[in-house]
Amino acid sequence: MKRDRLTPELDELLWAAAETDDPEVWADFERRYPKMRASLATRRAMIEAFRKARPRAVEALRDRYNPPQRAPVSPWRRLAVVPLAGLLLVGLAFGAYVITERLTAPKQEPENSAGPGPGPDQMEPPTVVPDGPPIQFAPDSTRGIQPDTGEPSLPPGTAPRPTYINPGSISIDLPATGTTLLQALELIANQGRVSITVMPGVQDVPLDFGAANPDAILTLPADEMLLLIERVAPIRLLDNGPEGYLVLPIDRVTNVEPPAGSEAEPAEGGPAAVDPNGP
């Protein structure tokens, strides 16, 4: 059967008219295209039959369906596990690093505790001579280092011949480090056979003579040794004549009138360089 070929526009218009449910559209199309009335009726019937042939849901579907028991996890939630796992790994790595570092680190703390001395912030403050009677360092043959007088031993029963010794001329051996002010004064008093009176308020500070060799021994006459100590310690040294030397704290010097003709004038400038191996 030969069919009339329709233009695409008319064919599309024919389908549009056939697919609608509006009778006015059908009537209008038939008025405009009377020859297409049969085609419109055929297509209307076909479309109506096709629409009526829409399948109906079957009850068998309910038997086939197994409702899920658990909703699947969203992929975004799964991705959230990644940074959490990364953080966990970083934490484990850091913990392992800390443990390894502690196990492999050299034991420095015991060495530090067995060091030469406490740190600056751990040093005890220097003791201060309390108010009250002053400390008297007098030459005593039973205390301290006995001075080497160079006198030969006498035979038994022989009285020693009296000799005059200038106390300031006796050499004093004093360690360059590790000695405090009071220890040094006591040592000078014993070795130099001079009397030293320490007034209240004098701080028993460690003496630092600036020696390059910490094991050096300073050897000086007693009076020079006292002058050297006066330069490095906060004290004022006063020559008290036959009574020996008077040691005052430096903040009380202004209240003390130095005796006339005192030889112990305050030294100007810093301490002189001391040769620990010198005389």
């Binding site: 829409r54 399948p55 109906r56 079957v58 369906y65 409702p67 899920p68 658990r70 909703a71």
Partner: peptide, 17 residues
Amino acid sequence: AGAFDRIYARYRDKVYV
């Protein structure tokens, strides 16, 4: 999981068609 039951009930017939 009940939400999926509802989705299934809404679209089951359409998918079958």
